[in-house]
Amino acid sequence: MQLPRKKLESPAEGVSRRTFLKGAGIAAAAVGVSGVDVAGETPSSQESLIVGPGPVPFQLTINGDTRSIEVPPSTTLLDLLRDKLGMTGSKRVCDRGSCGACTVMFDGKIVDSCSILAIDAVGREITTIEGIGTPENLSALQQAFIECDALQCGFCTPAMVVSCTALLNDNAKPTRDEIRAGISGNLCRCGTYINVFEAVEKTSGQGGRDD
């Protein structure tokens, strides 16, 4: 069973994401976004809220905390996390949703944060690697990654842990094939996939490496 990366709806009917991004980047343009709670106000179903191209205030829920944000509507969730909030566990590599290094959870489902506008995350629960564990208090999965030697350079590891955590949240005892499908969107240039499989199996009580 594959754990698909979540697809988001277009910000407004009749407005493509390409048009939205283009409009947000032009100083003289304004972008229509329907149904987004900006600065605590939700427009009626008969209205479209005009935002941008300058910074827009809104609130996001990240790792259980409500944060007040003010960024241009063209800002991606990845850029917000790394450059504005200092949450650098999500990595910028391909910047096109191909490598999975920027994976976060979005209402419990994995998504590529480089492919989502921060303003599209209003009203959602965002979980990053920083919300899963800390060096002083590792999650069981993070501890298993260490014990099973499931990392080498470590660059892909935060996103890999996020994907595996989402998988285990949905399926407490995944099969090897289900684990393989669950991390299919995460590339590891060091090739530690087998060790990752073992770490997930160890966490779920299905064996894994003991040494």
Rank of each mutant, 00 (worst) to 15 (best):
G133W: 07
G205I: 15
F106W: 10
T175Y: 13
E9N: 10
K91V: 09
L141Y: 10
F20H: 01
P4E: 10
V38N: 01
E70G: 04
M87E: 13
I50M: 07
G23T: 00
S90T: 14
D79Q: 11
S44D: 15
T103Q: 04
L138V: 13
C188W: 15
D37A: 08
T128Q: 04
C164A: 13
G207Y: 09
G25E: 08
R92V: 05
D170M: 05
G35E: 08
R92T: 06
M105V: 00
V162T: 14
G54S: 11
V104Y: 00
R18I: 05
L141Q: 10
G40P: 12
R124I: 01
I183L: 15
S115Q: 09
R209L: 15
T19V: 02
T66H: 07
N137K: 14
E136I: 08
R82T: 09
T76I: 05
A172E: 13
P158T: 09
L187V: 12
E201S: 15
E147R: 14
V200I: 12
E178A: 12
L60C: 06
V161E: 04
V56C: 01
D95I: 05
G131Y: 04
V162Q: 03
R18Y: 03
P43H: 02
T42D: 05
E147G: 13
I146P: 07
T75Q: 08
I194L: 14
D65V: 14
G14K: 01
D210A: 15
A150V: 13
E201P: 02
G89Q: 03
G25Y: 00
S16C: 01
N63M: 06
P43Q: 03
F58A: 04
R176A: 11
I183C: 07
G32C: 00
F58T: 03
G205R: 11
R209V: 15
Q46F: 10
I132P: 01
L168N: 06
P4V: 08
P43Y: 01
G14Q: 01
G191V: 12
A118H: 05
S204A: 15
G100Y: 01
G154K: 14
A12Y: 00
V38Y: 01
T103D: 03
I26E: 15
E178D: 13
P135W: 09
T127R: 13
D37E: 11
N195K: 14
K173S: 15
